[in-house]
Structure formats: C-alpha cells, structure tokens
Design a protein around this nucleic acid. Sequence first.
DNA 1: ATAATTGCAAACAATTTGCATTCAG
DNA 2: CTGAATGCAAATTGTTTGCAATTAT
Lengths: 141, 141
Amino acid sequence: MGGQQALRRTLHERGMRMTPQRQLVLDAVRELGHATPEQICQHVQLTAPAVNITTVYRTLDLLDRLGLVRHTHLGHGAPNYSVDEHEHVHLVCHRCGRVEEVPCEVLAPVGGTLRDRYGFELDASHLALSGSCRECSKETP
Amino acid sequence: MGGQQALRRTLHERGMRMTPQRQLVLDAVRELGHATPEQICQHVQLTAPAVNITTVYRTLDLLDRLGLVRHTHLGHGAPNYSVDEHEHVHLVCHRCGRVEEVPCEVLAPVGGTLRDRYGFELDASHLALSGSCRECSKETP
DNA sequence: ATAATTGCAAACAATTTGCATTCAG
DNA sequence: CTGAATGCAAATTGTTTGCAATTAT
C-alpha cells in the first residue's frame, strides 16, 4: 500500500504516464520482497494475464531509473529486484546457492576504507557477497 | 611460462587428458589477466582458429573445477575469468561500467564479522562490489 | 583400441528490438 | 487527438546439449 499516488506523481513530473501495468509491477516487487523478472511477471499475470514479459522488463528498467526499485546480480542467471527501501546485503553460497540477507551496516567499515583509499562510493544495498554458508562450510571445512 | 607441466599433471591425476585446447585456454586466461569467455575464445583463435567456443566454455568450466582459474560475475552479462593466483576484489562502477581491482585485504574486517555473526565464509577474491567510482561521484555527488 | 575430447548444429534462457495497435491525458 | 506505452513476433546474446568424428594415451 502507500505507493499509488507517489508513482503517479513521479511519472507525471517527467511527462510519463501512469498505467495499470506499471502499478502492478511495482506492487509485485513490493509483495514479493525480491524476485526475478520472470517471477514478477508471473505474479502480475495472476491479476492481469495479458501483461507481456516485455512490458515487465521495460517497467522494471524504468522503475530502476526512477529509483523506486533496485536490482542485484546474485551471480548466476536473472537479476533480483526489490523495492528501494528494502536495503540489505545478499550473502550467496556458491556451493548450495542459498541466499541470506544481512543488514548493510556490516559493510560500513569497508565503505569507509574504499572511499578513503580509492574514492569509490560503495553501494552496499546493490550487492552480493559470495562465499560458503554455515551448513556448507561444515561439510568441507 | 610456468604451467604446461602443472596442467598436464593435474589432468593426469584425474584420468583426464592433456590437449592443446586446454593449454591454450589456460594460457589465454593468464595472458589476458581477466576476460570473458568470448574474449578468451578470440585470443585462443589467434593461434588456433579452429577452436570452438563450446570447447572454451567446457574448458573454462573444467579449469574452474580444478581450481586453476576462477570467475566473477561483474553484474551485467558474461562472467570474468582470471587465473587463481590473481586475487583481487573488483570495484564495479554502476554508472560508467569501469572495473577497478583492489587487494582482497580490504575485506578482511568484514570477513571476520560475517564469520562470527552468520557463519558465512567470505570468498573475497570471487567478488564484485558495486558503487560509483571517483570520476562519476564527482559529477553527481 | 578405446574412452576422453572436440566440433558442429541445434536447443535454451534471458533479454532486447521493431513496429503496428492501443490508450492515458 | 496525439504521443507515450503496450503486445507480439522476431532478433540477440550468452550458454548448454546431443551426437558423430577425432585424438591422446
């Protein structure tokens, strides 16, 4: 809830139009927490079966540029979209594929180091760290 | 330099065969520093034009499992291969796309935190951090 | 000899593009 | 009305698979 007028306004400010598809895609991202374009499309199609995956791709791209959603590449295939407020770092286990979410603040010290040494502004919420999770580390320590 | 006998031995230990293709792919990864399968294929084809990209994919996968090369997903499309010894963290600028390499040790503090709090063993060299680089940060601070 | 490896063509998955149609303002 | 947005089909990109031909040992 919350977003319908905000989206309409943001679009209108830039001469863009409000459409049911755009609302549905944003709602889907919000409801799913984080999901691939494919999953988002399926969720949207529960309500509006005619919506094409091309439109989902275009809309995700738009919402991303508007700063309403963000995406992360978790390593393998499709990227993972979530609403902008939903900030976290993804820990991807490269053995079992599991993805864990942890608060961005674990990266705070590194963010400082990178800024000081390399002038690089880390975007912690748009990020996946790879390694092996607790379970998998046990098996082959 | 270095690898011809090492590769032959490693393969032989596992009942696998030494072939010119495998040597050429490993050499290409070493010479290019870090590159996509496509780029590696092109480099190999300078010497052996008949080598197929399918073989490059299969060989990279093999070398990866043998621990001789590693790959990183830099965000967008194709993954990036480099030789195993070549350890570094990639800083990917999500504005201009530039990739900078910095020593893994900048992540040491985070590695400790993740291990202690979440039991997650971070693999720092198999990693890309996204953010904005010095140049791009200047433009829109 | 013979099992591993390669090349090729075709299949696949994820994403993008061109264009005619539809629709929000 | 009119340009922006959508749907559809086809093109692209990156990667994998099946299989017959080749080759290292």
